[in-house]
Nucleic acid binder design. Structure first.
Lengths: 242, 242
DNA sequence: ACAATAGTGTCTATGAGACAATATGGT
DNA sequence: ACCATATTGTCTCATAGACACTATTGT
């Protein structure tokens, strides 16, 4: 069968004598742009033998065992190649593997999801931001990338209910109303100002800088993330409606 | 380099021309035995060319692309082969892949974790239950399985704080004190009886059966899981001590 | 003064923690 | 009656939700 591959080394062991699935890494890259949650997608190449030519897909590709020490390094590399961003929030999302997801044969992908500041990125020409509306992407994606993206959106929304993840979507300095706006964009529902402030301030995750944001109204205190870059977990979720 | 493998099909595409990592699936199988959280481990074979001969390891092995439709099916197969259990709680844990984790070459494993009722299982001769003490396994494991197991324990404990996962470790019929005991075993700390009962009963996840458990004291109401087998998520965690 | 947004306070509801009180079987 | 465990109730505390109120800037 075309595409099947058998190991040639370690001939004494029967165990290596298995056809090996294709191994890829894909990255779901989120950012806030234009007051919307957006995801970075690329257009599939059109070469002969390429599956899903010209379709939209998650940035990703084969693990390069000569260059990638491990899966996370491979995901970071792909992120950097597409956006130039080097120190994002990067978390493993899960893996998807089956006989049918790639027409070239049995394949498994290791999916990551990243939160970055779009302003700090410079995209390659094949990449662009697409908005998430009503918790979904309108466009169809190649492979099972639609499913992977849906899973990433669900995970992001879920975690935003009880963690400080949106902090990774913020510039270095931001105000509390800025941060609340990002929470609201991701969750797609308004939050109570008072409860929000109490929660964030008591979480000990941000600290004020000696500056204010000025505008045509009362100035707002600017904050920055505290040094430790681990996300904070709250003991309660925001009470979801129903 | 021995063990490297290149694709032979789809010659028109440069993309398939990558050495393929080894692809495996490993399963962390938990159960409650002897009032302790235990994990099912197997002994590595001793054949020539086998890495970590006779070491303890997680049950798992290569994906068999001829038999396994997808990764979850592969995990379910491995669970069934070792325990005979066919409908457990089975959740993907994550994946681990690097150049160094397997001496045979660049490899990636897809890890799953399962909760089963040990009484309902019949082990193969190479498998046995090992207790988790103080949140850790005392024994060293082959490959990076120690790290994978630690991650599974952390995930389990974390989720038990705010979900109904322990219900999958229970027999078909159980009492509320039984269930509380399992929560306490996994979390390794006592829970308040009253708060526990309120939470579980208001979660609408169990229903009483028309029987009582009798003993040398007041009988306890027997319950069973409601039909829908999805785990329940609580909006608050049990308040962890500090 | 007024508009606009930042930030605080007050009141209520919910659910956990602590722990006491009561219930119901076996012996 | 007494023991052991199941089950319920009471009181307090923390925090979210609702929403009103005050504060501080530019115009």
């Amino acid at each position: 069968m075309a595409g099947e591959v058998r190991a040639q080394g370690a001939v004494k062991s029967g165990q290596l004598d298995f056809p090996r699935p294709l191994t890829t890494v894909d990255v779901v890259i989120f950012s806030i742009l234009d007051d919307k949650l957006q995801v970075l997608l690329v257009q599939r190449p059109a070469g002969e033998g390429e599956p899903f030519p010209l379709s939209l897909a998650l940035p990703g590709g084969f693990v390069d065992i000569a260059r990638d020490r491990d899966l996370a390094a491979c995901a970071a590399r792909k992120l950097k190649e597409k956006t130039g961003v080097t120190s994002p929030y990067l978390e493993q999302l899960g893996s998807w593997g089956s006989a049918s997801r790639d027409p070239r044969g049995w394949s498994a992908t290791h999916a990551y999801f990243a939160l970055i500041l779009a302003d700090a990125s410079t995209l390659t020409s094949d990449a662009r931001w697409l908005p998430i509306r009503d918790g979904k992407l309108r466009e169809k994606l190649a492979f099972d990338h639609g499913e992977i993206l849906a899973s990433a959106i669900q995970r992001l929304r879920n975690k935003v209910e009880y963690t400080s993840l949106p902090a990774y979507l913020m510039p270095a300095e931001f105000t509390l109303p800025d941060l609340q706006r990002v929470y609201e964009i991701v969750l797609d529902r308004p939050l109570e100002k008072s409860a929000f402030r109490t929660r964030i301030l008591s979480a000990d995750m941000i600290e004020p800088v000696a500056k204010m944001r000025r505008g045509p109204n009362r100035p707002a205190q600017l904050y920055r993330l505290k040094k430790n870059s681990e996300p904070v977990y709250f003991v309660r979720t925001f009470n979801p409606p129903e």
